[in-house]
Structures are given as structure tokens and as C-alpha cells.
Design a protein around this nucleic acid. Structure first.
Length: 476
RNA sequence: UGAGGCAUAGCGCAGUUUGGUAGCGCGCUUGGUUAGGGACCAAGAGGUCGUGGGUUCAAGUCCCGUUGCCUCAACCA
């Protein structure tokens, strides 16, 4: 019992105090540390490795769609922002501005990018002359800065890392298709790599990106029932192309304005992984992006042959492409079990004299905490198979949790009761802004996304005919 | 930005009411022992008490300011 208590002291009880659990976990598993400037975080190697795995998976998908990586400057002339009216209004309050450099006040203040539509639009206008230059598809991995009031590691920080893709097209149809295709890629990525089931669809006018014609989102349900916007894809129409003069000569020899899109996901995805899969023992990382997929814990390491057997197994797993670590530290096996569980390593192998004697190993999976015996022969195949199973089961478990917590409501009390109980709530909406505002005001929930293809009789607020079904939830 | 809470060794805390030489547990270092869910013994190292000012013979403790963090609310990926 004393040992149980010791374990509990490490991180807050996930059921009793989820926000504290989150903070404890991200710090204690060494994903992040706080930076010296308010709202900044240091992404430590264990956290950054997750980001690198995310980047690798996404880059492969982007490149398949003909998107090339590039890099645009951090500093953007303030005047660029004023060219698109809605955009500047939306971002002005949170832009950090450089006013001095080289010991002098600058003639024109420079914005630290909160997003790069303006500078990329400017460059695109230079690069696009002919329909032959289209479509133009670039992506950049970079940092952006948004001066937020309240911050939390990964979920909301003053500076964060993301990718932002920007494309320009000759036609509306093509640009819209690109917008949807990227949303599909995000969804497929979230589900197959992060094991996070997402709801995708359009945002309301109130919730859309400043300057977009339409914003499409993927929303994920966190353990506490709140929704996290995990990625967005914007159809920008000709808003930015007009403002930044992205024009081309078409096949008819007529000058035309292009259509653009932008889309992004951020390090917030790491927060989504933590809050979707985490449990009372700490992190549970999906194998595809886990920095360490498998840890080998030697039992009775001093007995002859144990270390050698563990090293041989490590080599074998490494050779087959598994990210494996051998924990050869002096800590007791029990200590290591807890430590690696807190760090969310998907599969743990226990290997001791008994197992070696019998030609076996014990594999414990992190998602269910089940242990099972496997033959040491073909160990790499068994571990690979197990990692796949864990990945698949994590998605299924998350999907079940989420689906059991989507409810319907007819009125505002129903929405309030639903979100208070940690649900996503589907309800009819007449389409007017007043009703949307009223829900926010009275329930704290916001319209996360349109429920495509669903119908309802009446608006939950005003009782008039419902034009849409909306998924409401409290959001991060 | 509004309301509340917190800040003392790497981490978690006591000490503040009533001012009087800086404490505890874990971790860390060294040596020895250690088999499967946070091992044990022994000896050590480690703190200008967030920060600036004030009161006092004397401040972790009292007074004023300030910064950061946490929770809730408003704004946002």
C-alpha cells in the first residue's frame, strides 16, 4: 500500500483534477519545461521526438499531393496585414511587433508572424504569372507567435510550432477540392497515426478563420469531454488573392484572380494525444509517433546471461526498425515499470533468467496494461504485430469513448446539461448569429462544427425551423 | 483583463499566527547488499526562503510594490 501511495504522489489523480494531471504529466515525463518568458515553453527531446515523428508522417502525405516544403521569413511588415480587412481585425490583438532593431526605431514596425497568409500571398503574386504556374502548393514548418492571455503547454502558448500549407489554384472548384483533400489527409493522419478519432466539417461564420471564405476543422474529444480543434483547412476564395494581387493569364489570354487555400496543424496535436489517451498512470502514446516504441527491462540483471540476452534482443528489434530502448539503469524493475508507463511507451518487454531459460519474454502493452508471454524466437515480428494491435485498439477505444458521449438536445437546457456532463451535443440551429451567441453565453459551449448531412426540426434556441445541425461542446 | 490561490534545496512540503543561527521526505553523490510492480544499510553534498524597497538591534516570518505559476471567467490554434 505504501508503494501505491508513492505512485499517486507523482501525478495528480486524472479523474479528480484533470488540468493538474495534464500539467504534472507534461512536466514529469519531460515533454516540456516552462520558458522564462510568459507563455513560452521549451519542448524537450522526448516531446520534440513526437513532433519529428508527426512531421515525418505528414511530410510523406503532403509530398504525395505535390506540396513542397519551403521557408518564409519570421518578420512581416505591418502594412501587409492591413491589406485584408477581416484578417487584420482578427489577428491584430494578438500580434507581437518588433519596433526597434540595430539600436534604432524602425521606420515600419514588423510583425512576428501569427500566420503567414500575407507574406506568402505577397510572394505568390510574384511567382504566379500564367495558368502554367498553377496550382502552386507550398508548406512550411515554422514557429508562429500569438500573444495569448492564458497559456498551457502545447494547447496554447505564445509561441508554437506548426505547419502551414498554402496553395493557389486557377479555379474555385480546384481550390475547394484542395481544401477538402487536406482536411481528409488530416483526418486520416489523426486516426491512423495518433489514434485520435475526429469529427470533420465546416465551422460557423463566427468561428471561421479571419479572412477565409470557409473554414473546415477536425475536432477531437478530450478525456474531460471538451473539444480540441486539432487542425483546420481554410478555403480562402479570392480574398487574399485579390488583396495580394495573385493574378495569372488564363488559356484565353485574360488576366484572372487565383483562388487560395491554407491549412495547418500545430504542436497542439501533442496535447491532443496526451488528453485523448492518457490515464491514471500517465501518458499513453500511439506506437506510430511514440519516440520509444518498446522498452526492455532486464530482470535480475546481474545473473549471468541476462544482460547479453537483453542486448541481443535490442539489436534484433532495432534491426527490424522498432524504436527500442534497453533500460540498463540501476533502478529496480518495479521502478522502471512505473517510469516507462508514465512516459507512455506502448510496449514493455520484461526479460529475466526464467524467460531466457524457457525461450520466452513477457510483453506488457501500455494501453490495456495486459501482460502476455511470447517466444523469443521471431521476437521482432511479435513486437511489431503487438505495436500494430495497440495502435488499432487505441483508436477503437478512443472512438468508443467519444461515440458514447455524443448526445442530442432540443433546447438550450438540454445543451447545457449535455456539455456539463462532458458530452458533445448535437442540436438544431436556425443559422442566425444571435442564437449562436446565446448558446455560448448560457452554456459556455461553442459551435464546434456542422454535423454534415444531419437534420433537425427546430433551432434549440429560438424554436424556428432548423437549417443545420451543430455539434456543440466546451472547447480548449 | 476580472476573481481567487500559490512561490522556502532538483521535486513535494513544514516553518509565517507570536520576528531570534534553515528543517523534513523523496531525489542526487560515494561504498556495500538487491529477482518480476516505485528495494535496503551507511556516509555525504545541496538553500542570498521569487524579486525590489521599507520597518527593526534582528525579517522566510511584519508593511508596500513587482514578477511568475495554478484554477475559474472573457479572447484565441
Amino acid at each position: 500500500m505504501a508503494k501505491e501511495n508513492q505512485f499517486v504522489e507523482q501525478i495528480a489523480d486524472i479523474n479528480a483534477d484533470f488540468p493538474q494531471w495534464y500539467t504534472d504529466v507534461v512536466l514529469k515525463t519531460k515533454l516540456v519545461d516552462y520558458g522564462p518568458v510568459k507563455g513560452t515553453m521549451v519542448i524537450r527531446p522526448y516531446g520534440y521526438a513526437i513532433w519529428e515523428n508527426i512531421q515525418n508522417e505528414m511530410n510523406a502525405r503532403f509530398k504525395k499531393r505535390g506540396v513542397q516544403n519551403a521557408y518564409f521569413p519570421l518578420l512581416i511588415p505591418m502594412s501587409y496585414f492591413t491589406k485584408e480587412a477581416e484578417h487584420v481585425e482578427g489577428f491584430a490583438p494578438e500580434v507581437a511587433v518588433v519596433t526597434h532593431a540595430g539600436g534604432e526605431e524602425l521606420a515600419e514596425p514588423l510583425a512576428i508572424r501569427p500566420t503567414s497568409e500575407t507574406i506568402i500571398g505577397t510572394m505568390m503574386s510574384k511567382w504566379v504569372q500564367s495558368y502554367r504556374d498553377l496550382p502552386l502548393k507550398v508548406n512550411q514548418w515554422c514557429n508562429v507567435m500569438r500573444w495569448e492571455k492564458t497559456t498551457r503547454p502545447f494547447l496554447r502558448t505564445s509561441e508554437f510550432l506548426w505547419q502551414e500549407g498554402h496553395t493557389a489554384h486557377a479555379s474555385k472548384e480546384e481550390a475547394e477540392e484542395e481544401t477538402f483533400a487536406m482536411l481528409d489527409i488530416y483526418k486520416e493522419f489523426a486516426e491512423s497515426c495518433l489514434a485520435i478519432p475526429v469529427l470533420t466539417g465546416r465551422k460557423t461564420e463566427k468561428e471561421k478563420f479571419a479572412g477565409a471564405v470557409a473554414t473546415y476543422t477536425m475536432e477531437a474529444m478530450m478525456r474531460d469531454g471538451k473539444s480540441l480543434q486539432a487542425g483546420t483547412s481554410h478555403y480562402l476564395g479570392q480574398n487574399f488573392a485579390s488583396a495580394f494581387d495573385i493574378k495569372y493569364l488564363g488559356t484565353e489570354g485574360v488576366l484572372q484572380t487565383a483562388y487560395t487555400t491554407s491549412w495547418g496543424v500545430s504542436t497542439r496535436l501533442i496535447g491532443a494525444i496526451i488528453m485523448t489517451h492518457g490515464d491514471e498512470r500517465g501518458l499513453v502514446l500511439p506506437p506510430v509517433v511514440a519516440p520509444i516504441q518498446c522498452v526492455i527491462v532486464p530482470i535480475a540483471a546481474r545473473k549471468p546471461g541476462v544482460v547479453e540476452a537483453c542486448e541481443a534482443l535490442q539489436k534484433e528489434l532495432e534491426a527490424s526498425g522498432i524504436r527500442v530502448t534497453l533500460d540498463a539503469s540501476d533502478n529496480s524493475p518495479g521502478w522502471k515499470f512505473n517510469e516507462w508507463e508514465m512516459k507512455g511507451v506502448p510496449v514493455r518487454i520484461e526479460l529475466g533468467p526464467r524467460d531466457i531459460e524457457a525461450g520466452k519474454m513477457i510483453c506488457a502493452r501500455r494501453d490495456t496494461c495486459e501482460k502476455a508471454e511470447y517466444a523469443l524466437e521471431n521476437a521482432a515480428d511479435s513486437v511489431k504485430e503487438l505495436l500494430k494491435t495497440v495502435q488499432k485498439d487505441m483508436l477503437e477505444a478512443a472512438r468508443k469513448r467519444r461515440d458514447s458521449r455524443i448526445v442530442y438536445a432540443d433546447d438550450i437546457q438540454g445543451i447545457l446539461a449535455g456539455v456539463d456532463a462532458g458530452n458533445f451535443v448535437k442540436a438544431g440551429w436556425c443559422g442566425c448569429r444571435d442564437c449562436e451567441d446565446k448558446i455560448k453565453e448560457e452554456t459556455g459551449a461553442t459551435a464546434r462544427v456542422y454535423a454534415e448531412g444531419e437534420t433537425a426540426e427546430t433551432c434549440a434556441v429560438c424554436g424556428k425551423k432548423a437549417e443545420h445541425v451543430i455539434i456543440y461542446a466546451c472547447a480548449y
